[in-house]
Design a binder for these strands. Structure first.
Length: 415
DNA sequence: AGATGATTTCCTGGTT
DNA sequence: TAACCAGGAAATCATC
């Protein structure tokens, strides 16, 4: 399959692009009946157009929309482009984490006093929120915030009403797809398995690709929506629990791409719908991400070369060890992610290693950050004596003599 | 333009 | 078996 798309990308025949785009778009529609196939095709489509979107395929939910918004060229939106990423997603598809971010933005934007709000109030996911009427909202969020949330949600919902899909249309697109693939006569097609590298792509990771990535293209939520209109859209509890901490980063610059989902009727597949035609100029602008290029075979649904979004500049004060230190010395930002084992000695422990890695990834605009990679960077600090080894203890590190700002005295002095 | 620093990514092999 | 640790190698990009 990879060869297939490489070939197509290389030859770049317009008719292939147009045809394949059409098919891929249709394939997304039929993703409920063939999720793996749609994943492949989605990836292929994105690969072909070199849009950077495939990175979205491996986004954690809260990162994903940001990528969308990166394509939004509307300068009016750019100021709040990150905070209102959820505008790109149907509220029906919001996870609890997404919903919390939306609520948080509403509170901030309207200067509400949220001090009386319990976290439990904000742990509902999109489908749950969508089921609530105005009175229920008021009951939960109060007279001040409730109506505002309700109205905002109604506006979002209105924008994202899904079009139903007829069975005959599905059959037609299936047939079209089959014919097209047959005509290509690629022996590799039969061997494709998404998630082929079991153990390489974890189940959890794979699941949330399915759940989130393709929803804005997506399968799971789309299926849910189509079949039941409202269903539970699970969230990653780990990230939900640290969602506030996860809201790192300031607004991101918009790219010249057009806005997503604003005028699109097939709003359930905004990425596909919107990315399909790219100008040469746009392609030239694409950059390779930093680091060794990931092996494509490891994850068919991602292709790092197509990711143009990262801001490579690392301003002072944003080194990894400083990021870690700041989590540790600001307990209000450290929601059980890390803890001091021995503050005086500078010994600390990761409690939620993957969550911290995700936050780091968030900060660096790198959606594929993992604890494994983060820990490699941490180990490089040993040589520079920014960190010291703590043998035999998992997830435990110690600040070294070349680190600063973590000692009690330094903290007391306001660093 | 080339060197350097700070990661990022992949990998193999070992340990818990 | 999964998660973690260790460290080499290669890659990127901003900065010098």
């Amino acid at each position: 399959m990879k060869k297939l798309y490489n070939s197509i990308s290389r030859y770049g025949f317009p008719w292939i692009i147009v045809t394949l785009h059409h098919i891929v778009t249709c394939a997304i529609r039929i993703s409920m009946s063939s999720p793996c196939l749609s994943s492949i095709l989605t990836h292929a489509n994105l690969t072909m157009y070199q849009t950077g979107i495939p990175d979205v395929l491996q986004q954690e939910p809260s990162v994903l929309p940001r990528i969308n918004t990166l394509q939004n060229s509307n300068p009016e939106n750019s100021s709040n482009i990150y905070n209102e990423w959820y505008m790109q997603i149907s509220p029906h598809c919001w996870t609890a984490d997404n919903a919390l971010e939306w609520i948080s933005d509403q509170v901030e934007n309207n200067k509400f006093d949220a001090s009386n709000l319990s976290l439990a109030c904000c742990s509902m996911d999109g489908p749950t929120l969508c089921q609530m009427n105005r009175d229920q909202m008021i009951g939960i969020f109060g007279l001040q915030l409730g109506p505002n949330l309700h109205q905002s949600l109604q506006e979002h919902k209105t924008k994202y009403d899904l079009q139903s899909l007829s069975r005959s249309e599905l059959n037609e697109t299936c047939q079209l797809l089959d014919n097209f693939l047959d005509s290509l006569n690629f022996p590799l097609l039969s061997t494709i398995r998404i998630g082929q590298a079991e153990g390489v792509v974890s189940k959890k990771e794979f699941e949330y690709r399915d759940d989130y990535d393709l929803t804005t293209l997506t399968m799971e939520p789309m299926t849910s929506l189509r079949d039941t209109e409202l269903s539970d859209n699970q969230s990653d509890s780990e990230y939900s629990s640290s969602s506030n901490s996860g809201r790192f980063g300031s607004s991101t610059l918009g790219s010249p791409e057009s806005g997503i989902g604003e005028s699109e009727t097939e709003i359930s597949y905004p990425l596909i719908s919107k990315v399909h035609i790219k100008t040469e100029t746009e392609e030239i602008r694409l950059k390779r991400p930093r680091g060794r290029p990931p092996k494509i075979s490891r994850d068919l649904s991602s292709s790092i070369y197509e990711c143009p979004k990262k801001n490579k500049h690392v301003p002072r004060g944003t080194h990894l060890w400083e990021f870690i230190r700041d989590i540790l010395i600001h307990p209000e930002r450290n929601q059980g992610l890390m803890k001091w084992e021995d503050h005086r000695e500078g010994v600390f422990k990761f409690l939620k290693s993957e969550a911290v890695a995700q936050m780091w990834g968030h900060k660096k605009k790198n959606s594929s950050m993992t604890y494994e990679k983060l820990s490699r960077a941490m180990r490089y600090y040993y040589k520079r004596e920014i960190l010291e080894r703590v043998d035999g203890r998992r997830l435990v590190y110690k600040f070294g003599k070349n680190s600063s700002g973590w000692k009690m005295e330094e903290i007391d002095m306001g660093m």
